[in-house]
Design a protein around this nucleic acid. Sequence first.
DNA 1: GTTGAACGTTTGAAGCACTAACGTTAGTGC
DNA 2: GCACTAACGTTAGTGCTTCAAACGTTCAAC
Lengths: 167, 167
Amino acid sequence: MVSAEDTGDAAAGETLETPGRLERLPSRLLAIAAAEAERVVGAGLAAADSRKWHYAVLASLGEFGPASQAALSRRTGIYRSDMVGLLNELAERGLIERTPDPDDRRRNVVTLTELGRSRLHDLDAVQADLQDQLLTPLSTNEREQLVEMLLRLREHHARTSPDSWGT
Amino acid sequence: MVSAEDTGDAAAGETLETPGRLERLPSRLLAIAAAEAERVVGAGLAAADSRKWHYAVLASLGEFGPASQAALSRRTGIYRSDMVGLLNELAERGLIERTPDPDDRRRNVVTLTELGRSRLHDLDAVQADLQDQLLTPLSTNEREQLVEMLLRLREHHARTSPDSWGT
DNA sequence: GTTGAACGTTTGAAGCACTAACGTTAGTGC
DNA sequence: GCACTAACGTTAGTGCTTCAAACGTTCAAC
């Protein structure tokens, strides 16, 4: 992630313009916007000793209650292989607890601790701030339009194929 | 990239809903949309034996004429380390030519071949089709609005910080 | 002329999505 | 009851992409 100005060593004296074909290419703009979002949100959450996946898991637990790791995987879109390490991080911070499920000994029941719940609350505020920061140049109306359109894209492509995620 | 349905082994019988907090989170929706775009465009270009960076470089050459590798880097946002391999791929396919610059022996002048030019033309059609495919659920008007908003986001964040790219 | 910077290139680190396989445990059909 | 299939958590590892560091070479400025 580097500005167009310093991808090479430094600009000599050229125009430095991006080709017209790329300038307004939706897929490219989406990639750029997503990268910006990643940067803004990633940095903001890191400053709060958190990551987007932390928020996703905490939110899932906060809204649906205790769940198995596999259920968390499905709801958040995080691979169950990666969920292991993620939950370790959250457990280290005392935000969740893993206990074996007595009803199904294959499973762990993941529970939000009190600290985790208050942390989620804090992160809600952080997130709101970051999203606001990200969308600064858009009016309230436009933000809604944007979200609406993106939801429609998501829904459309969900039929024909898979997705990845990102907070 | 996997649908929510099969992130784990398979869904048991749970609700499978994503938390409300994540559902409409702009940064998340952008990441999802960008991933979809990547998938659609990536697959489409791959079917045409191409990649998004190929298109970016060819477009840059087509619009601004022959250029050094560094200039291409700056214009496309591709790191000059990665440009080397990229240009190798394009040269293998006979789409570009690298010749030492007589005026500056540090540089290579990268030129579009005739084949490259016609290939660019073909890819224009492919891209148009892919973008259309990507934005299917949006009206013409909405597509313009979306692009406009994304451009504004790009412009805004370009001031405060860097970017990555993507076709 | 010496110094600083841009050039193309190689190498490799870091993070990410993703796959494969494992031992364990549960449900399902028979 | 018992085989069979499948989900569970976990470990290990692959492949891709972005990005950083360093190299010898060539140029420009002073």
